[in-house]
Amino acid sequence: MVEDLELHTLGPTGTNCEAAARHWLRSRGADDTRVELHPTLEDAVTAVLADPDRSALLACVVYPDLHNIVFGNLDSLALRDCFVMPTHSMVLASRGGEAPRTVASHAAPVSLIDHMDVRIRLVDSNAQAALDCAAGEVDACVTTSVAAEAAGLTVLKDFGPVPMGFSVHAPHEIEV
């Protein structure tokens, strides 16, 4: 039952996956605090499989290795739902507003800065990119507006929200 379901997804807090997971639970009348965040979706799958009686995975359809997650777990997980919702505004942000030389980004939105002459450091999530920027590990980041604000970053460019697909995968035993 959805009311008892823990939904595992990509963290840390501030990711589009977290927002989508909370939205999906609320839309089914379930408690949106039952979202567990993980450094990668692969880690989230491991957690779901460790507790298959009450866990499911929420993924973003542009996650670079979603195909491996789906086909590598056909015996354990089934695609149960797909939906579209806008992401948080995607932004290029920095600590002080200066032109960046290094930018942290998740692989999915990195093409937003293809036109820039910068060194790109790939990270596991948009929210992690903001944390790394705030910590001074890079000059700027591609992240969500929520993560940029939480990290105290300055928005250099706002790309706006993106209509995005999200998928829910659950063990075969679970009703979703």
Rank of each mutant, 00 (worst) to 15 (best):
L79M: 08
R80V: 13
D81N: 00
C82K: 11
C82F: 14
C82V: 13
F83I: 03
V84F: 14
P86K: 08
P86H: 11
T87E: 08
T87Q: 02
H88V: 00
H88A: 04
H88M: 00
H88G: 00
S89C: 07
M90A: 01
M90D: 06
V91P: 01
V91H: 10
L92Q: 02
L92T: 04
A93R: 09
S94C: 09
S94E: 09
R95G: 15
G96D: 15
G97P: 10
A99V: 11
A99Y: 03
A99G: 09
P100A: 10
R101A: 13
T102D: 01
V103Q: 05
V103N: 01
A104W: 03
A104T: 03
A104E: 11
A104S: 11
S105D: 08
H106G: 00
H106Q: 02
A107C: 05
A107V: 08
A108G: 08
S111V: 05
S111D: 15
S111I: 06
S111C: 11
D114H: 13
D114G: 12
H115P: 00
H115D: 15
R119E: 11
R121S: 12
R121H: 12
D124M: 10
D124L: 11
N126C: 03
A130W: 02
A130Q: 06
L131C: 05
L131F: 12
L131E: 15
L131M: 12
D132A: 11
D132M: 15
C133F: 14
C133M: 10
C133N: 14
C133S: 09
A135F: 05
A135L: 06
A135Q: 06
G136M: 01
G136R: 03
E137N: 04
E137A: 10
V138N: 08
A140R: 09
V142G: 07
V142L: 14
V142K: 07
V142Y: 09
V142C: 05
V142T: 04
A147Y: 13
A147W: 04
E149L: 10
A151I: 05
G152C: 11
G152N: 13
G152E: 12
G152Y: 14
L153N: 02
V155T: 13
L156C: 03
L156Q: 09
L156V: 01
